[in-house]
Amino acid sequence: MAVNPVYHQTNDRLQEELVIIQEAKENPERFGPLYQKYHEQIFRYIYQRMDDEHLAFDVTSQVFVKALKNLHKYEYRGVPFSSWLYRIAKSELYQAFRDRKARRTVNVESMHLFEMVEEFEEDDSVTNKKKLLQCLSLLKDGDLQLIELRYFEKRSYREIGEILEITENNAKVRTFRALERLKKLFMK
């Protein structure tokens, strides 16, 4: 599985980011480079989970407002700054669902369905794809989130762990179990 180059960065890049963050703590205007760098991936993360494009832009904007507002609380813990942004995004996203502004949505590409059906060692038929789509909507949110992060967004276990604030191994185990549950639903 390919590694997301925007997320995984060299130490030098991380240090460069840290300098920007320190400057932005003093002067919010210096946050600009980080905003430009992460805006797209945070938007895509949010839009992947809802069906309203405008609302997705609003929520994305709100994520950066919150990030800038709470930047003084940010502490570097050896993980990319984006993992902190993802956590804020997750929180804002669920706030939007709670406020009933948006509806929880799963956006799937045919290619992803094909890969999953193959994983289940079943035929790549239209019926199976439809069935898989149905099963996805029946999954618990925690399981669905792991499937989305791993199979639809192609994130590494390390990245998943950092976004969900769990260890890499734990992310791997949980994802495997989520896939097992999906398979169980699919085989019924």
Binding site: R44, D51, E53, F57, F64, K69, N107, L113
Partner: peptide
């Protein structure tokens, strides 16, 4: 949960055009 298959992708340029950092700073 609503499921959507093969939704039309949004281009990076379009997303970039929606960036509004000034508004974010103002909001913060």
């Amino acid at each position: 949960i609503k499921t959507i298959l093969d939704r039309e992708p949004i281009s990076s340029d379009y997303i970039r055009s929606k960036q509004d950092f000034a508004n974010v700073v103002k909001g913060a």
